[in-house]
Design a protein around this nucleic acid. Sequence first.
DNA 1: AACAGCCACAACCGCGAACAA
DNA 2: ATTGTTCGCGGTTGTGGCTGT
Length: 249
Amino acid sequence: MGRSPCCEKAHTNKGAWTKEEDDRLVAYIKAHGEGCWRSLPKAAGLLRCGKSCRLRWINYLRPDLKRGNFTPDEDDLIVSLHSLLGNKWSLIAARLPGRTDNEIKNYWNTHIRRKLLARGIDPVTHRPVAADVGGVTTISFHPPPPQQQQLKPPPRCPDLNLDLCISPPCHQQEEEDDQPLDVEVDLIKPVVVVKREVLQAGHGHGSRGALCFGCSLGLQKGGPGCSCSDSHFLGLRAGMLDFRGLEMK
DNA sequence: AACAGCCACAACCGCGAACAA
DNA sequence: ATTGTTCGCGGTTGTGGCTGT
């Protein structure tokens, strides 16, 4: 026996949403809140399946959506998070307030991926594209071969806390021991703040607050994932771009 | 002006995880 | 422990708009 359908397909609309459907959905959620998507369409008087309602709300109707063009900051953040998390769009979206996983996924596939390729960077591995002897360029459009697949993230990274990435593990203790780090934490966009520090670092751990992305995430200085001595690449640092092989505790 | 091809994005589909009975 | 249901995610497709010929 197959899987039961997510909803009654017989009497549901498909395709683009009308203004009236949008209004109904918004009005219902404003009145009753999110939840129980399966029963929502009926309760809201919509001829849609629950999944469709959920997607419409999350990707388009939610009032806190930012919409509009991605900023260069967001661009860089997406690249760095993708290098860390792979195609975990929902996790990436969680770090970009006002952006949805679907939006980021589309943006990645249409803009960033192309941009990386144009710069000679493999969008899958985030490493410079390897050119073979004959001058033919090899680009990964599919998951990397087995030996590289261990770089894939574990099914979930439950213990990787990206919520607040300012952490002290690799600042220069020998220099300024008990001085508290002078770090401004933007609670709305904490990760962007970290990344800006990474960008302005440019010279390893010597400068205060100048942590590589890995160290910003709380990884061990000099350990796997720390790239404080690597050269810059794409406004980020080459070498810091692949944390996917790390054991998450 | 008409057509074809391309691009961007909204929406759908299938699967696995989480949860409840 | 098993089964069924619901939700959420990621990959894929469909479609409308734009651009070039």
